[in-house]
Nucleic acid binder design. Sequence first.
DNA 1: CTTGAACCTCCCGTCACGGGAGGTCCTACG
DNA 2: CGTAGGACCTCCCGTGACGGGAGGTTCAAG
Lengths: 294, 294
Amino acid sequence: MTADDGDDRRWTIGELAEATGVTIRTLYHYDEIGLVTAGERTPAGHRRYTADDLRRLYRVRALRGLGLSLEEIADVLARPADDLTALRDLLGAQLAAAERRTVRLEQLKDRLGGLLRQLDRSVMPDAEQFMATLETLSVYDAYFAGDLRDHLARHRAELGADRLERVRAEWLELVREIRGHARAGTPVGDPRVQDLAARWQAMAAGLRIGDGERIGGGIREETGERIGERIRAAGEALWRDHGAQISQEVARDIDWLEPDDLPAVFAYLRRALDSTPASTPASAPDGAPEKDGE
Amino acid sequence: MTADDGDDRRWTIGELAEATGVTIRTLYHYDEIGLVTAGERTPAGHRRYTADDLRRLYRVRALRGLGLSLEEIADVLARPADDLTALRDLLGAQLAAAERRTVRLEQLKDRLGGLLRQLDRSVMPDAEQFMATLETLSVYDAYFAGDLRDHLARHRAELGADRLERVRAEWLELVREIRGHARAGTPVGDPRVQDLAARWQAMAAGLRIGDGERIGGGIREETGERIGERIRAAGEALWRDHGAQISQEVARDIDWLEPDDLPAVFAYLRRALDSTPASTPASAPDGAPEKDGE
DNA sequence: CTTGAACCTCCCGTCACGGGAGGTCCTACG
DNA sequence: CGTAGGACCTCCCGTGACGGGAGGTTCAAG
């Protein structure tokens, strides 16, 4: 199995490139870093690839196609031929990375789709408005960065588009009812207001972490509680720094909503929550469900 | 809307980085390439970013998050403020690219999953066998490259995993029946053999192009016929160059199949197809359904 | 012997930054 | 008033996996 397998054909670099579909330049590169070297050279210095080299090249290409880096490939190919543990670990990591990429890709597609719909809806919408939407998008990203964003994206994907739409509608209805009480001057201790506030809190918690996370920890290293708290804190900071901008954005899409309504509703709600005896201290009513450019 | 919007705050580079979540190094980079420059400098040369700069940075980050390159971003931001056509085109292209990436990612995950199952099935499988599987994988890729691979992946995704499994089982059944006739020495002109050959051809065509492609061309620039033919040719070349290796691979997974069976079946089948009066000339019975490391 | 294709090495460029070196500037504290 | 230490400046090299060109050598066919 080492060398003389009966097939002692030799390939020039051009033939090898042709046969395997890689470019000559790539073969030079692999030679340079010692990943796939020609077993022989002609007296003039031209590379002669052996059947072993060819097979090694096939393996390299396959592993590259699976997403491994050239360095990782060199590692696994340098190990004793019967040691597959490192390879399995790498492939597992690759699968996990691919799943993370899928989540991000789905989110990206959602956003692009939403923005394109917005662009086509009004044939030529106000460019300034559109740019403002973009700005808000990146503000969201700055506050829900890294694993927070992944978590939210995954959670939203689990919910599904239609259920999310229903949650959004329900949230809007809540906002409207609370605005009514705020305008009417209902005291925040009123049972109806307290009930609305409780529903609000439950809904916010449901948006942050899915039911699945609370039950079985499983692989997740971080418990749902902890990440939920971090999301809440991020939302609070987002609202503190950019609340005005966001409420403008939201109000523009909802015809019955004035730009000042959301801040008013939130302030009222915060008082309602703070007046509850058993409430978490100073817990801010966190932000609206993300809009994602829709 | 140009400058004096009432907000004449200035930010140092560190404050801007903190506020927007980008690194200082990135801001230097944007300055270098002229994408986001500080509107002012202190006498000592320190950057002072204005509110306009901040908003520009937000837009840049948003567009980056949507997948645009810095050059594309510079382009769209350089246009007159009410020209959104270029931006819409770019976002559309980005969405298309994201969809292509999704297809590839799904295929990658399928492969990784299949390989990992294979690795875990037999606790420590023969490393050489596993490496041979890898080699075959990259051989497939070399023959079904570029758009062909994308086409096949999309088509398989449309079929769905369970339906593909049934097709595979049906294909194996066909192989077994044909092998029976080949072993029994049934003449290739026999109606039963001709019927099997016809079923084979129909199945191969169905694997190459989906029903959808034949009916509505829609966006696809290339007709299903043309790409089907290219896939057939690629499969034929693959079988010509690597038939022996592939039939070994396939036979290893199917207990009733000998390594020499597939070549024999294919040769017999080719004779059967060639003997048909109205057959396409010298049409090779193209390769097995891809295994994808399962 | 010639000619053109294939091959060789060397080196610069890609993309969006990361990171370090070595120096200047700002601010708070003793 | 001096100084410490943090923030800031410019310059430049490195990343990963090659692409591409320059300029020269070798090979195979006519």
